[in-house]
Amino acid sequence: MLLYALITSSAFAMSNFPADLQTDLGMQCTATCDLCHSSPSGSGVPTEPFGIAMVDRGLTVDAATVAGALDAMVADAVDSDGDGIIDTEALAQGLNPNPTGADYCPVGSSITGPVYGCASVSASPVSGLAGLLIGLVALADRRRRAAA
């Protein structure tokens, strides 16, 4: 029962920060690790202004703290590079909010980060897959009736 207690009381998920930031801010591509870290692979504690500001506003390794820290960044209008664009808005635009470092995938720029997927969609694609499964079940039912 120790394992059960461990899981239900103290365990949580550590964040995949680039993916979480992309989702939370609606970024067209993921930021690189140097958004927060001096190491290109993301090792070590955050050393860049954006990362430090997020930690100051409650970010931990727990994925659940990402959204709260971002909300606090907005509330405090944190602008790490002082360009007049707050950090969260800069990221949403694909810009690097730190004083140094390359932008990620600026809107309207020919420089883009990696883009995943073959075709853009404007709605959830789950309905198409659900339709496929429903069709499969209907086919099974038809064959069962035919066999009967």
Binding site: A19, Q28, C118, S120, S124
Partner: peptide, 17 residues
């Protein structure tokens, strides 16, 4: 998640094929 396997490109809610 699973971006590298995406067929569709939906960065918002609703997931991807």
């Amino acid at each position: 998640g699973g971006q590298r396997a995406w067929l569709t490109r939906n960065a918002g809610a609703g997931g991807n094929l």
